[in-house]
Design a protein around this nucleic acid. Structure first.
Length: 190
DNA sequence: GGAACGATTGAT
DNA sequence: TCAATCGTTCCT
């Protein structure tokens, strides 16, 4: 499985959001390898009022403006982390939120991290998948092309992509910037 | 220094 | 439908 590289992530957020569907997120941990197929994403870019990068660089969002292919992890609602992939050339504040995965490898470890939730509840939401993988603020800024956290291309993918409204935002609600694999049971919301 | 507000989740 | 829970941002 080839690892996604810098030139893949350098593209605009919408393109990357769509092309990430069907790829595999992998994290090496001391207890073993965790893998999940990306089945749902959302695109955020600098001109988007709903994006953290909309108001320019802040201490929290500076990694969004950094080089593509790095992890942007933020803490939300006082209890959850969300994992994003930084997109677009350095200097532009773009990212793709990974909203849902289909568990592939390390399922027992994910169940431990998620307090033994059922398989279909392990990674079907951004806060859930971060918890299942043990992703926290310490992963913020990691280089996905050079670290234990990476994304890989799979073989032939024959899925259909559904465009939909993003979840949980109060600005630019009408924009169809959420993408998911049609029919996949791990999508957070259809 | 203080207050309002979340790119969510799970329980009611 | 609503509470949990706290870092980030913005205002004073």
């Amino acid at each position: 499985m080839p690892k996604l590289n810098y030139s893949f992530y350098k593209n605009n957020s919408v393109t990357v959001a769509k092309e990430l569907l069907g790829t595999t997120l992998r994290l090496k941990t001391p207890k073993g390898i965790l893998e999940g197929k990306i089945v749902e994403t959302e695109a955020y870019h600098q001109a988007d009022p709903a994006s953290h990068s909309y108001k320019g660089v802040t201490p929290r969002t500076q990694v969004m403006f950094g080089p593509p292919g790095h992890a942007y992890v933020y803490f939300v609602y006082g209890m959850y982390f969300c994992f994003n992939v930084v997109t677009e050339p350095e200097g532009q504040g773009g990212a793709v939120l990974i909203r849902a995965l289909e568990p592939i490898k390390g399922i027992e470890q994910m169940k431990m991290n998620r307090k033994n939730k059922k398989l279909e509840q392990l990674t079907n939401g951004p806060g859930k998948l971060a918890q299942a993988f043990g992703i926290t603020k310490k992963h913020n800024g990691m280089d996905l092309t050079k670290s234990d956290l990476s994304i890989h291309l799979n073989g032939n993918q024959t899925h259909k992509i559904v465009k939909a409204k993003r979840i949980g935002i109060s600005k630019a609600e009408h924009e169809l910037l959420r993408f998911y694999i049609k029919g996949n049971e791990f999508v957070s919301k259809v």
